[in-house]
Amino acid sequence: MKDDPRLADIIYPGTDGNVVLLGFPYDEGVARNGGRTGARSGPEKMRAWLRRFGTVFNPELGIDLSPLRITDAGDIDPGLPLEQAHAALTAKVKGILQAGGTPFVAGGGNDQSWPNAQALLDTHESCRVGAINVDAHLDVRPLIEGKAHSGSPFRLLLEDARFSGELFVEFATQGSQAAKEHVEYVRHRDGHIHWLSEIYMNEDALGWFSSALGRVAWDCDAVFVSFDLDSVRMADAPGVSAPSVMGLRGSEALEIARIAGQNPKVQLFDLSEYNPEIEEERTGRLAASMFYYFCLGVASRKEA
């Protein structure tokens, strides 16, 4: 309706937006890691839930999205072998970054986070890059027969000579999902782990995330925020490969997306593991809402 425009009404095809939606419809990396497949349909179903969702002017927050150019770059070709798809994703994200856009990459499996991070490192070769992984898991497992998978993206990032582990944060990690060896690996690489239990002990998930992002952003030139939907409790996000009764609340996930979008040093955001074959609507609405809230954050950015 003309008097009630929604987010989908102002999304245009292309790669020239201030925010650029890009799909990575792959879950082979999940299968390699022994997880349940189905996330390959995530980008398609997320876009379906975007239709008629999210007012262009949000009167509660006083944020107007209409000055923001939001575009949809489509999907990485779903017919490629996974390693070629990763290379294509890096190239696409790098092109968006170099054009001045902020990519929001919707997966697909969490293996997408390594090629996304590569694009940011390639774009800022002489700068310091930071990363925050919002995830129930650490995702620092070794490669399987030399191949990347959904459990390995941040091991690959931490082993990249261009990246400093002191600028890496694992956020909302669950002790029941993190092997002792992997915890030691992250700490050996100087990474930081914020456990879900300590976040909730202080009942301030958003304050903790804001502080973590602020510390990373202070010390670097560009930040990558990766959000795995299995960090959200299954009451709010049942449609993931590895749902958990514990986790962040859906409302916290939305605000984390907005806080990330609001920070001008956040130049890349990815969302992983939406699996419509397990559950479509509740998790799909959350994924679409996170894109909306990220855009609200970008629209309210101030200069760094």
Rank of each mutant, 00 (worst) to 15 (best):
L7S: 07
A8H: 14
I10S: 02
I10Q: 03
N18A: 15
N18G: 09
V19M: 14
V20M: 02
P25Q: 09
Y26L: 11
D27F: 07
N33Y: 03
N33T: 01
G34T: 13
R36K: 13
G42L: 02
K45I: 15
K45Q: 15
A48L: 14
F53M: 12
F53H: 10
G54S: 08
T55Q: 14
L61P: 03
D64E: 13
L68E: 08
I70E: 08
I76F: 01
D77N: 15
L82I: 13
E83V: 09
A87N: 07
L89A: 14
K92V: 08
L97W: 00
G100P: 07
G109A: 09
D111T: 07
D111L: 01
S113L: 06
S113Y: 05
W114D: 00
A117I: 11
D122W: 08
E125T: 12
R128K: 15
A131L: 15
A136S: 15
L143P: 00
K147W: 01
K147A: 12
A148Y: 05
S150N: 10
G151M: 04
P153M: 09
F163K: 04
F163H: 02
V169G: 03
A172L: 06
G175W: 05
Q177A: 15
K180Q: 09
E181K: 05
E184C: 03
R187Q: 14
R189M: 11
H194Q: 03
L206C: 06
A212H: 09
W218S: 10
V223Y: 02
D230P: 03
D230T: 07
S231N: 06
V232Y: 07
A235T: 10
A237H: 01
V240H: 08
V240L: 04
V240T: 15
R249N: 11
G250R: 00
S251Q: 13
E252D: 13
L254E: 08
F269Q: 07
F269L: 15
F269I: 10
I278S: 04
I278V: 14
E280C: 15
E281V: 10
E281Q: 10
R285F: 09
A287G: 06
Y292R: 05
Y292D: 10
F294C: 03
L296S: 02
